[in-house]
Amino acid sequence: MGVAIRAEGLVKRYGSVVALDGMSLQVEEATVLGLLGPNGAGKTTAVRVLTTLLDPDSGTAEVAGFDVRRHPDEVRRRIGLSGQYAAIDEYLTGRENLQMVGRLYHLGKAHSRERAAELLERFDLVDAGDRIAKTYSGGMRRRLDLAASLVASPPVLFLDEPTTGLDPRSRLGMWDVISGLVRDGTTVLLTTQYLEEADRLADTIAVVDHGRVIASGTADELKSQVGGDRLDLVVTAGSPLETAAAVLSAICGVAPTVDQHSRRLLGPVAGGAGTLIEAIRLLDEAGVGIDDLALRRPSLDDVFLSLTGHHSEDETVAPTSRRQRRQAERSTS
């Protein structure tokens, strides 16, 4: 199996803000890499470099066997990009949008028309195909945008937050479509802020923070990196948290984390279900009222927290507007 995307030491600065700080990653053919990180972590910048939209300050990247800087047109022939915003022409119909993209990939008139019809069918847009895209719902626009990125059947697909802003039903639909593409052999790099999405779609996850990949592996590998299972206890109102904490300390060997507000305690455990039974017995003996007690595997949020020291939803400061970036650029030049 070959490598479809390879990036080494990508650096991109906007003035004093470092958007990419030596990012390296690799995606095997016909697999999905999930680039997971908070806003401003550098996910979109990485996608922009890999799709030839942005020149990195240093570092190299190869997509579908071609260097993005030396052979950008060869790369463009082999990739599809679907961004955070549905990049479609609102005053063209869905069909016209797809045909236009086909013509711009130089597929020829007849073939472009065929592809447009196929994709409308596949993305359940046949009925809306001859209406201008302005009349489409958010989910339909996203589907049309994804369809546009697939016109030339590219072997490598970049999806920048493909489900951000979609309702749960549209999101599930999008996940099915993406899974289908990968089954057909497409390599996908997708960025997401949603742990659930990465968990569900990605073969490999690269956790990104401050412009760098800070951990990568399968979801299970990342979770085991954080440690084993955890005992998750919610104490009944009125029961002393201190007593509960003391009991958990005895079981886990270390002091559990205590959230006073939700009356929740978390502690790492080595044993399996037996530990759960022991915990119930000891807590009962100590007179601690139990609202909820569970043994759970660490979530990707736990992974994120243990790797970065902050939750995945925390926003970090980054220049997001064109003006800010430009000002930053100017201040360096």
């Binding site: 799709t51 915003y85 022409d89 711009l104």
Partner: peptide, 17 residues
């Protein structure tokens, strides 16, 4: 603003088109 320029720039089309 609508991201269409990004789409066009990611296509193998002429830069002047």
């Amino acid at each position: 603003a609508k991201g269409l320029i990004d789409r066009f720039r990611s296509l193998p089309m002429a830069r002047s088109a």
